[in-house]
Amino acid sequence: MTALSLLVCAALAAPRPPAPEPAEPPPPATAAEQAERIQAALGRIHGSPAPATWRSLGPGADEALLKVAADGAALPRRRALALTGLSHLGGARAEAALTSFAAQEGLPFAVRAAALEGAGRLLAPAALHRALSPVLAARRPADRTVAAEVLAERAPAESCGAIRARAALRGERPGLARALSRCGASGR
């Protein structure tokens, strides 16, 4: 157990059963409280907010998160986590936003990577393949790496052929090694 998990179960001495996921808290009673809770979710230092935390942010949270994600003046990690939150909230607006962000060249790496991973969480395999396979040819190698890993994990049947084809290009194989390994493990 590392510092991350110890802080979640800080009362334990000798080993104890892992704590169940806490019950979903009530939605915020006021707009100010919602804003506080969104800030807290975006500012968690160790580990990801639980899906229940995102879901408990209440009506309109998707709009607030989308505003953060689209704010070019906001710091990249904050925008990235807003996209992750959106992917947990789901819905047509979140799908459209994540697909759009995933397609954008020139975004800070953390932002685009979060969009790629969020799309992987939200889209069905065929739709995911359509949305992310063009990113296998993205300008930034790290974007290609993340896209390939998401596709290999979430849409192997649809995408492993394209990942292998990309890996056959000169210099591409090292960055796609983990994706290729996942494709191999999935038998695709």
């Binding site: 590392t2 510092a3 991350l4 110890l6 500012g43 968690r44 230092i45 160790h46 580990g47 990801s48 907010p49 990249p76 990690r77 990235a80 986590l81 996209l83 992750t84 992917s87 790496f109 953390a110 990577a113 979060a114 991973e117 969020g118 790290a142």
Partner: peptide
């Protein structure tokens, strides 16, 4: 590191306290 965890969810983590 460029990012930690899926979706850049983690800001930092140390070994032990």
């Amino acid at each position: 590191v460029p990012r930690i965890g899926s979706g850049s969810a983690t800001l930092g983590i140390d070994g032990t306290i």
